[in-house]
């Protein structure tokens, strides 16, 4: 177990919901923290009666949504200004990504809640493009409730054994991410071939 994870677990046991809020909030604003393993642990602590399951879900979703909103509003209010100030021109692939997110904001925001690194970037992009806040917060909350709820439930079911499965859970997460990437690539290839034929 890494030193940072051991420190965060101790922090969690000492300060409970406050620690959970802080860790989830920081992770949502681009600080790389092992939140999935921590949520798995919180689920296990809830099954042992040391944490309350519903309160943990509420605090984790609230903290994640608060962090996501910070990224969204920062990009919305200052994103273009900062780019103009630094005289940075957006690369073509970012412009294309912008178009895609603008066309399909809901599924993009919802699905990226399941992938740690993509989550804060989508928040910035959503704010940058100017996706309506009501749409952003709706899909953000929905995605957070489902993704955080799933990890907490797995921890709850594993109970005392969560430490044995934390590595396997990480591998399953990456495998899922790989499958989604593969599906997107295959879909793109199929789409390009269809266009060529027509």
């Amino acid at each position: 177990m890494s030193a940072i994870l051991a420190f965060l677990l101790s922090f969690l046991l000492l300060y409970k919901y406050l620690a959970l809020f802080l860790v989830m909030f920081l992770a949502a604003i681009l600080v790389p923290l092992p939140t999935n393993t921590l949520l798995l642990a919180v689920g296990a602590f809830a099954s042992q009666g040391y944490f309350n399951f519903a309160a943990s879900l509420f605090v984790a979703v609230l903290a994640n949504a608060a962090g996501d909103c910070c990224g969204y509003f920062l990009a919305r209010n200052y994103g273009r200004k900062v780019l103009r100030m630094l005289r940075i021109r957006l690369p073509k692939y970012i412009v294309r990504l912008e178009d895609y997110v603008a066309k399909h904001p809901g599924p993009t925001i919802f699905l990226t809640r399941f992938f740690g690194a993509a989550d804060p970037l989508t928040n910035l992009l959503s704010g940058f493009i100017g996706i309506p806040f009501s749409v952003f917060i709706f899909y953000d909350l929905l995605g957070n409730i489902v993704s955080i709820g799933i990890v907490l439930c797995v921890g709850y079911f594993l109970g005392t054994y969560w430490q044995d499965y934390s590595k396997a859970f990480g591998i399953i997460g990456w495998a899922f991410f790989g499958c989604v990437c593969l599906c997107i690539i295959l879909w793109r290839v199929w789409h390009i071939q269809q266009r060529k034929r027509s």
């Binding site: 177990m1 051991a6 420190f7 046991l13 000492l14 042992q48 040391y50």
Partner: peptide
């Protein structure tokens, strides 16, 4: 584990 608190060990 070493990261556990005594409060948690007592509870567990």
């Amino acid at each position: 584990r070493a990261w556990m608190t005594f409060d948690y060990v007592d509870h567990l």
